[in-house]
């Protein structure tokens, strides 16, 4: 999933300063799973903004709406009827959601409430960890299912740096050294041959593309 964290309230307030009628829009998918942009968080943020305005003697209107996905137009459509009544959309979607909403409603300013952080997994409740940088050329098959691009702080493809100690990464001792994991798992899977092989330079053009990447699937497209 895509993970995100709420921006500090002060930053959100600064972006909203010119506006009075705010449509606070959540997303029911990734950011709901990571408890940053779902219905509950929309409620919390809207409530905090209303109280904050009241304390400062301003009147605002903060209306709450959460749609299933902010990155798919057919769901964004559900906002169409309401949008016209508001000065601004405060989106609690990920970066893709914010942009999709902005695309659909070019006349209404859209501001992000979240900092989109990474693609990750829910390790345990309340703990999310990054494990993919969407490099466009998945190499996990050679690294025992541990991504060296993401989980090694230096993105090393050919073994641990000189700082790996007791299973921890030298850069962040709270994180496991990806290479310790790769070595252990390849060993136990009987694939130490992969540990001896030199992995060639990555093709980052698959990640960087020529600007934004796109996927076109003719079989999925509608005729029109």
């Amino acid at each position: 999933m895509i993970t995100a964290e709420r921006k500090p309230l002060a930053e959100i307030k600064a972006m909203l300063a010119p506006y009075r009628k705010i449509l606070v829009v959540g997303c029911g998918t990734c950011v709901a799973e990571c408890a940053s942009g779902g219905e509950k968080e929309v409620g919390l943020l809207a409530s905090a903004l209303r109280m904050d305005a009241q304390i400062e003697g301003r009147t605002i209107e903060a209306h709450e709406m959460t749609i299933d996905r902010q990155c798919v137009y057919e769901f964004i459509d559900k906002l169409t009827e309401a949008v016209g009544r508001y000065d601004v959309i405060l989106s609690l979607g990920c970066g893709a959601g914010v942009q999709a909403v902005a695309e659909v409603f070019p006349k209404t300013p859209v501001v992000p409430a979240l900092n989109t952080t990474f693609i990750g997994e829910t390790k345990e409740s309340g703990l999310w960890v990054e494990n993919c940088r969407a490099c466009g050329d998945c190499k996990l098959g050679y690294f025992a299912g541990v991504c060296p691009v993401t989980r090694c702080a230096k993105g090393l493809f050919n073994g641990p740096c000189g700082g790996s100690k007791n299973g921890a990464c030298e850069v962040d001792p709270d994180s496991p050294c990806a290479w310790q994991l790769i070595v252990e798992r390849l060993d136990s899977a009987g694939r130490s041959d992969l540990l001896e092989a030199i992995y060639p330079p990555a093709d980052w053009s698959k990640q960087q593309g020529k600007g934004p990447r796109k996927i076109v699937r003719e079989d999925q497209r509608s005729e029109s």
Binding site: A153, K154, L156, N158, I198, P201, W204
Partner: peptide, 28 residues
């Protein structure tokens, strides 16, 4: 070499490049 991670130095906000690693560099 690959080098020490940028977070240890005096430019911790720098983007770490790590386009290739030390072994790929040796080979090149």
């Amino acid at each position: 070499l690959s080098g020490d991670h940028q977070s240890f130095g005096n430019q911790p906000q720098a983007k770490g490049v790590f386009d290739i690693d030390s072994i790929q560099f040796i080979q090149a």
